[in-house]
Simulated assay, not measured.
Amino acid sequence: MTTAAVPRGGGREAITRAARESFAERGYHGSSIRDIAARAGLSLSALYHWHSGKQDLLAALIEESTEEYFRRCDEALRDAGDDPAARLGALVRATVEYRISRQVESTIAASEWRNLDPAHRERLDGMRAAATRLWADLVEDGVARGAFRCEHPGDARRAVVAACNAIAHWYEPDRGLAVPDLVDRYTAIALRVVDCR
């Protein structure tokens, strides 16, 4: 009995990198599994060792980058203490830094979400809902404690999240806008939106 060769070192990472590049350049429908394998420097059989196909690759790319986002948010909130304004600033910072450092993945997730099959979409919708709940709980806690005085917490939360997420679409490092300055700017915007006194 013969067994298929298992890719050595960096096989999975090479596939992820190749899929990210191909989806960013050509979109989901314009990318072929053969092209992704070629970009990764692997055979099709080696690619199939890690992923069952292009749909699985797209879902894995979105899931892995979303898990990293949650890790960053958890770390930021853990260090922020209990003050609602500090916690909101920490979540804004984690989101802005993530959207800048993972621009390609952020753009792919936003533009290719519609191409996920129902099973993948249902599973990943849970991650999206968890992110929404993270922000909503933070804003609602600030309102309940009198730190935020916005009349419409849900709308305030949507406005802040949309602004932070949009950074992935327009940010260019060579514009001369340093990331810490952008974080400060968006934190100030967020605090005004929730009417932090």
Results as ranks from 00 to 15, higher is better:
G10W: 15
E13S: 14
A14G: 09
I15A: 09
R17K: 15
E21G: 12
F23Q: 04
A24V: 08
G27C: 06
H29G: 13
G30E: 02
S31T: 15
S32Q: 10
A37Y: 03
R39P: 02
L42C: 05
S43N: 01
S45H: 12
A46N: 09
Y48I: 09
H49K: 13
W50L: 06
H51I: 07
A59C: 04
I62N: 00
E63A: 08
Y69N: 04
R72K: 13
D74H: 13
A80R: 04
A80W: 04
G81K: 03
D82S: 14
D82V: 12
D83H: 07
P84E: 05
P84C: 04
A86M: 08
L88T: 01
G89S: 06
V92T: 02
A94N: 03
A94W: 04
T95E: 08
V96K: 15
E97F: 02
I100Y: 07
R102S: 14
R102C: 13
V104P: 06
E105Q: 07
E105V: 01
T107M: 10
T107Y: 04
S111Y: 07
N115W: 01
L116R: 01
L124E: 07
G126D: 05
A130Y: 01
L134A: 10
L134T: 07
L138P: 01
V139G: 02
F148V: 06
R149G: 10
C150E: 01
D155K: 13
R157E: 01
R158D: 15
A159W: 10
V160Y: 14
A162N: 10
A162C: 10
A163R: 15
C164I: 04
N165K: 08
H169A: 14
E172P: 02
D174M: 14
G176M: 10
R185E: 11
R192N: 10
V194L: 02
V194F: 01
C196F: 10
